[in-house]
């Protein structure tokens, strides 16, 4: 994608788009899909915005260009013909994408993420607890995380790997994530949960398959 690169390089946006928590710097296929959806919507929106602004400006600056448009053309054209196909196409695409992102099909490994004010406890598929608020997963394959809460509502969000899911007391929610490469991916609580909300960071460590098998078998 060269366009994102071009936009991120704009000097005004000094920070660029990369960052350990940036959704625009995806590190897995699911997050990449979401980023692509964003860029498509951004460029589409920019076009529509420019169109509306141009029409408004022309009403004052170049009235001759727009006086011949009839009332019906304004309303049917602008209000119906323009948005309806765009919205159907976009919503349809998003729904199909949403179906693909659901945690279904061949059951991958299922990890646990338990939120409690204001820290996370992660578990291996066999139920063993991990230490230090770090979730160890294998890279290169999808995994599921079952997210639960001890007290109030939290949300589990690792922006570079995929979207977020809420941790709600009394419920268990599933989210599927995938990291392309071994590495460290930062995550955080996204739902306001009281005075410690600021610091509810955690890490995902993605390991190469062999290393991960060692972790699973090794019993730490």
């Amino acid at each position: 994608m060269f366009k994102p690169v071009a936009l991120c390089a704009t000097p005004l946006l000094l920070t660029g788009c990369t960052g350990a928590l940036s959704t625009l710097d995806p590190a897995g296929p699911r997050a990449a899909n979401l980023a692509t959806l964003w860029w498509v919507m951004l460029y589409g929106s920019a076009l529509l915005f420019a169109l509306v602004m141009a029409l408004f400006a022309m009403a004052y600056l170049r009235p001759a260009w727009v006086t011949r448009i009839t009332p019906a053309q304004w309303i049917v054209g602008g209000g119906l013909v323009l948005p309806i196909p765009i919205l159907i196409l976009l919503t349809g695409t998003a729904l199909v994408l949403g179906e693909q992102l659901l945690p279904r099909g061949d059951a991958p490994l299922r990890f646990g993420a338990h939120a409690e004010r204001w820290h996370w406890t992660f578990t291996y598929p066999d139920g063993r607890e991990m230490s230090d608020e770090v979730l160890h997963i294998p890279a290169g394959r999808p995994i599921d995380v079952a997210v639960t809460s001890q007290d109030v509502i939290h949300a589990f969000w690792v922006p570079r790997l995929g979207g977020k899911i809420d941790a709600i007391p009394g419920h268990e929610n599933l989210i599927r994530l995938e990291a392309d490469e071994p590495g460290t991916y930062w995550g955080q609580c996204a739902e306001y949960c009281g005075p410690g909300h600021d610091g509810m960071w955690f890490r995902i460590e993605a390991h190469a398959s062999d290393d991960f098998a060692g972790l699973m078998g090794g019993g730490q």
Binding site: V52, L55, F56, M58, A59, Y60, P63, V66, T67, I69, P71, W74, I75, G77, G78, G79, L80, L82, P83, I84, L87, L90, T91
Partner: peptide, 21 residues
Amino acid sequence: SALVAIPTAVQIFAWIGTLAS
């Protein structure tokens, strides 16, 4: 949520159209 954009668009274009005509 997507569909509610349509009545909004109708109003936006009615306003711009009012100015233009």
